[in-house]
């Protein structure tokens, strides 16, 4: 059985809440894995050796222990997954100035993808419960072909934010104005005007949802959709 650890770095716990928000399907997922570490759910102080580690939250560079904890995951886990935007793209932690009162000097927060060699990144703030479920199911079933986009996002080349949507979709003459980005945005930073997204940069938190959800940036392939969506699995 797959040994799964859940590590929380600098974040809000929202990704874990989203994972739990799969309701009864969470039980199916837990049936498939042996949960070996998760501070919120179990009393286990050290991250043990494991097959998969899901990491939520950003890495605080001012916090030696946090950096070490993150780096050690490379030794401890076979597969490292940056779950959610803080670990994947940086998210609003990029703008965090001063941590909680006990450590007001903490201000350098970067995504896990900048610090360690991450295998897969699942953006979103938080990623939808159904997205986490799909990702874990594909991972546990070893359908790595469909996970390739997540592996690519884990390279952490950019934030995959509203700006990237402009530079790499709209500016490349590929946006057909479907409105997916606007629906996916958790902060309502995107409005479709004259058939193209207009991003309110003050509201964009760099969560990567718009870029990742856009059908023109990453297309999973018609066959996957016919098999996993239209084949009746969702019914």
């Amino acid at each position: 059985m797959v040994r799964l650890a859940y590590v929380q770095l600098a974040g809000c716990c929202g990704c874990l809440v989203s994972l739990a928000d799969t309701y009864e399907r969470l039980l199916d997922i837990l049936d498939e894995v042996e949960l070996v570490y998760c501070q919120t759910l179990m009393d286990e102080r050290e991250v043990p050796e494991c097959d998969v580690v899901l990491v939520e939250g950003a890495v605080c560079l001012n916090h030696e222990e946090c950096v070490e904890e993150a780096r050690e995951l490379e030794e401890k886990a076979e597969t490292i997954v940056a779950l959610g935007a803080c670990a994947s793209t940086g998210n609003f932690m990029r703008y965090s100035r001063g941590n909680e009162q006990s450590a007001p000097t903490h201000e350098a927060f970067v995504p896990l993808t900048e610090v360690v060699d991450v295998d897969y990144a699942v953006p979103g703030c938080p990623p939808a419960p159904e997205a986490i479920e799909r990702f874990l199911t594909l991972l546990l079933e070893g359908k790595t072909e469909l996970l390739e986009p997540f592996a690519k996002l884990a390279e952490g080349k950019t934030e995959y934010c509203g700006c990237d949507l402009m530079y790499h979709v709209v500016n490349k003459n590929m946006c057909m104005g479907c409105g997916t980005c606007a629906a996916a945005c958790p902060t309502r930073a995107i409005e479709v005007v004259d058939g193209r997204p207009v991003v309110n940069e003050d509201r964009c938190i760099k969560c990567g949802a718009c870029f990742t959800q856009c059908p023109r940036t990453i297309w999973p392939g018609d066959e996957a959709i016919k098999e996993l969506v239209m084949g009746g699995e969702e019914e």
């Binding site: 419960p129 997205a131 996916a184 718009c210 959800q213």
Partner: peptide
């Protein structure tokens, strides 16, 4: 369809 397959920003 993509939102159904990989619903990163499409909760519920």
């Amino acid at each position: 369809r993509k939102a159904q397959l990989l619903p990163v920003g499409m909760r519920h």
